[in-house]
Design a protein around this nucleic acid. Structure first.
Lengths: 331, 331
DNA sequence: CTATATTATGAAAACCTTTTCAATGTGACA
DNA sequence: TGTCACATTGAAAAGGTTTTCATAATATAG
C-alpha cells in the first residue's frame, strides 16, 4: 500500500541495504548510487517508516514530558529549555498532560516502558516517591521543577525552602511582623518547602509562628481572593502576604484592591513564579523568579547523559532563584 | 537484554502466539493459559514493545497536536477537549511545539509521514495553505482554532469575522462612534478575519472607516500598552477599543489605567479569548469567548473518523462564540 | 604482476510483535 | 463407531527498517 524502502531500491536498481546506507549518510557508497537513490526517493515521495527503524535500532530519539496541564503558562519556558537541549542532540520532545490524574500519569509512563519514547521527564508528578523510585530503577526518568522526598531519581529544581525564606525575610526587612501565607491544601513538595521557608524566616527574626496567618486553598486565582478575605478579616490582620504562586497572589491583590487597601503601603504582597501577568497587573507584583529555561535545559542534558551512561546519575540539582521587586512591596 | 514476548512464552510454557492472544484479550484461549501467561508477565515485569506492535499493526493510536508554544494558556482547554475525545476511543494525544518556526513545524509533521503518529492537528500553523493542502492529500491532518484561506483540510474553528463584527457592534450599540482596533502585524487568519469583522460593523452603522484608528502590534501585552498609547494620543482619540486578544487588551487597559482614564466610562475595552486573567484583572475585561473545549473535542472526533473513512471529510466546521460582558464595557 | 588492502555491494538476519494457517484434541451427534 | 463442529494451540509469515557478513571489484603496495 504505502511506499517502502523496497520500492525505492527497485526503482534505483540497488539493494535495500544501499538505500538504507544512503538515507543514513553512511560512508562506502558510490556517488552514482547516492544519486539514483535520492532520485528514487524524490520521485516516489518516500519517507522512511520510523516504526521499522526505531524497532531495529531500539531507540526513538523522543523524550516525553509529562505535565499536569498546559494551563500554567510558566511551564512554557521550561519546555523551551527542554527543547533547546533536546534538539541540540537530535532528540524531539513530546508533551502529554495528566490532568492531575495519577492513573493517567502511569498510563503515559507506559509509553516509556513500551519503548515508544526513550525517556521521560515528570514536571510535578502525582505519583508517590516509592512508585517513581521503582520505575526509576529500570527506566530513564527525571523530575523537573518539583522534587520528591526520599526519591532518588535525577531531579532538577530550585531550593524552595530557601526561596520561601528569602521572600518572607524580605517582607520582614520591610518592617512587617504580621505576615500572612496563602498556600495550597493539595500538597506539592514545592508548596510544603515554601511553607517551611516561611516558618524559618519567622524564626530567623524571632517572630512567633501563628497558624491563624496561614490559609490553605488551591492553585486557582479565586482561592487567592478567598484567602485574602479570610486573612484581612482576622481580628489582627496581617500587613504583608506571601502567596506561593503569582496566580494566587493576583487573586489576593484583586480582593485587597476591591476593598480599598493601598497595595505596597497598607498591605504588601509577594508572589512566586514571575509569570507574564505579574507585571501587567496594576499594581505590579513582586515575586520570586525561578530559572525555568535553565531547569528545562539542564534536566534534558542530564537525562540524555543518563541514557548513554552505564551508571545513571540520580542526583538532585538545585539552581538559584531571585527576588523580583515591584509595586506590591513598595519598590 | 530486555524481556520480550518470547521470554514470557518460555516461562509460561506456551507459544508466543498464545501470549499475544492473552495480552490482546482475544477469545479462544484456555483459562490455564491465561493464568500462566499473566503470572509470567507479572513475575518478569514484562511490558510489550510498542515498536514491534505498532509496526505489525501499522497504527500507533497516537495523535500529534502541533502548537506554537504552550504559553497561551487558553490552548489548555482545547487540549483538554482533544484528549477527552481521543481517550474515549483509545487514542493518546501528544503535544509538540514549533516556537513559530515553519521549518520545525515541517520537521514535526515528519512524525506523521514516518508513521510515528496516526494523525496530526495543527493549531495555528505557520506553513502556507498550499503546503498544507499537499500534505493533507496523503496524510491525516486537521486544523483547529485557525482556518487558512484556500485550504481544503478538515478544519474546526469559529467564525472570526462574525465574532469581530459582534464585538464592535456591541461597542457601537453602547453609543460609541470612534472605535480603535489593536491587532497584530503578524497576520494569522483569525486576526485578519476579526479585522474584517471590525470593518463590517462600522459599515453596518454607517461609520466611516478611519485607518488611523487601527494599530498593528504583536501578541505581547507590551504591544497592547503601546497601541493604546498611540490611539489615545491621536488628535481625536477613540472612546472604545477592540483588541483581538485579551493579552493585548489587558496591556491596553494597563496603559489607560496608568493615565487615569475611567475604564467602562470614559473608555471602553473589548478583548478576545476570555482567558482566566480577564476576570482577575481589575477592572474585569469584557471579551469574546470561543468554545475551546468543544473545538478540541470535535476536531479529534472528525479526525479519527477520517482515519477510518475511505473518503475523508475536508470540510470547515464553525462553532459559535459569545460575548462576555464585564466592567470594561460598563456592564 | 602478484599479494593485499580497500571500497562498494547485496543477501539475509535481526528487532518484536500480530496474525494467518494448519493441526491437534475434544465432545456431540447420528 | 464414524463424522463433524468447535475450541485451543503453535509454527511461521509479515510488517519495514538497519546491520552483519560475505563477496566482488578495484586500488595499492611490494
Amino acid at each position: 500500500m504505502s511506499v517502502t524502502i523496497k520500492d525505492v531500491a527497485k526503482m534505483a536498481n540497488v539493494s535495500v541495504a544501499t538505500v538504507s546506507r544512503v538515507l543514513n549518510k553512511k560512508s562506502n557508497v558510490s556517488d552514482e548510487a547516492i544519486k539514483a537513490v535520492n532520485d528514487a526517493v524524490e520521485s516516489l515521495g518516500y519517507s522512511p517508516n520510523f516504526l521499522g527503524r526505531d524497532l531495529r535500532k531500539s531507540e526513538t530519539r523522543r523524550i516525553l514530558a509529562i505535565i499536569a496541564s498546559t494551563e500554567q503558562s510558566f511551564y512554557s519556558d521550561v519546555i523551551r529549555g527542554m527543547e533547546a537541549a533536546a534538539y541540540a542532540q537530535g532528540y524531539d520532545v513530546l508533551i502529554a498532560t495528566t490532568q492531575n490524574d495519577p492513573n493517567h500519569e502511569m498510563h503515559l509512563l507506559g509509553m516509556l516502558f513500551s519503548r515508544a519514547v526513550d525517556g521521560a521527564v515528570l514536571l510535578g508528578p502525582k505519583l508517590d516517591a516509592n512508585t517513581i523510585n521503582a520505575l526509576g530503577e529500570k527506566h530513564n526518568i527525571a523530575m523537573c521543577l518539583e522534587r520528591l522526598d526520599n526519591c532518588n531519581v535525577l531531579t532538577v529544581t530550585i531550593d524552595n525552602v530557601k526561596a520561601g525564606r528569602d521572600a518572607v525575610n524580605y517582607l520582614i526587612r520591610k518592617g512587617h511582623k504580621k505576615i500572612g501565607l496563602i498556600t495550597t491544601l493539595q500538597r506539592s513538595q514545592s508548596s510544603i518547602d515554601r511553607e517551611i521557608g516561611y516558618k524559618l524566616a519567622l524564626k530567623d527574626n524571632d517572630i512567633p509562628y501563628n497558624e491563624e496567618y496561614v490559609y490553605f486553598g488551591s492553585y486557582e486565582t479565586e482561592q487567592g481572593m478567598t484567602g485574602c478575605e479570610y486573612l484581612m478579616n482576622l481580628p489582627s490582620p496581617p500587613t504583608a502576604i506571601f502567596a506561593i504562586s503569582d496566580m494566587i497572589a493576583i487573586g489576593a491583590m484583586n480582593y485587597a484592591l476591591s476593598k480599598g487597601y493601598r497595595i505596597g503601603k497598607d498591605l504588601m504582597f509577594m508572589g512566586f513564579d514571575n509569570i507574564a501577568y505579574s507585571h501587567m497587573f496594576v499594581p505590579h507584583l513582586s515575586t520570586v523568579e525561578q530559572p525555568c529555561y535553565a531547569q528545562g535545559k539542564l534536566v534534558i542534558e542530564k537525562l540524555i547523559e543518563n541514557m548513554k551512561a552505564d551508571t545513571p546519575d540520580h542526583n538532585l540539582y538545585t539552581l538559584s532563584h531571585s527576588l523580583v521587586l515591584r509595586d506590591s512591596t513598595g519598590d
